[in-house]
Design a protein around this nucleic acid. Sequence first.
DNA 1: GCCAACGTTGGC
DNA 2: GCCAACGTTGGC
Length: 200
Amino acid sequence: MPPVRRSARVNEFAKKATRSCKSGESHTTTALSNDAKIYGYWLMKAEPESRIVKGKDVKFSIDDLYEMKDSTSCWDGVRNYEARNIMRDKMKIGDKVLFYHSNCKTPGIAGTATVVREAYPDYTAFDPEHPYYDPKSKADVPKWFMVDVKFESKFSNIIPLSALKGYQELKDMVLIKRGRLSVQPVKAGEYDFILKLGNK
DNA sequence: GCCAACGTTGGC
DNA sequence: GCCAACGTTGGC
């Protein structure tokens, strides 16, 4: 299962589900005072090109985010522990997110978003019909979590991964050193540098 | 708790 | 569509 969020279309019925999902704030954030402030910047990957999983299209691009109601979406479908832990334990309202397009013709950073809701259970894991169903995650003991993000900006031109790799300033980016992590920390300096590239 | 086998990610 | 890198699973 890809550790990226799934489609906007599937998201519509998922949203209905969330209203009846009582477990929204059930997890507690604890013992984070030492490192919670280290990162306020993240990078999250989504697949902007169509890919069918269990009969449903899991594509989700920066444009798809923009087109959501309030330009806001849950970031479901992450099925990797490290990425989950970041969402569950670290991401806070107001944090900045680089929106990355992966597994596509031109992989790269497409724009920015902000965190508008902190971690709550990824209920898509509970639905056997859903592309990201996980029978090991139960509503009373959720295994997977997600946050909500809101569109902030679309770069005039996507910054391709190939270009990012060329900058000395970005040589230590998690994106470059650890290609497969789908939710990852970004340093403030990296974020600022990328914003300037994106707005050129 | 090691680690081989397996499955997925994601650039190319 | 290939396949290297790497995360997860499960036998022992």
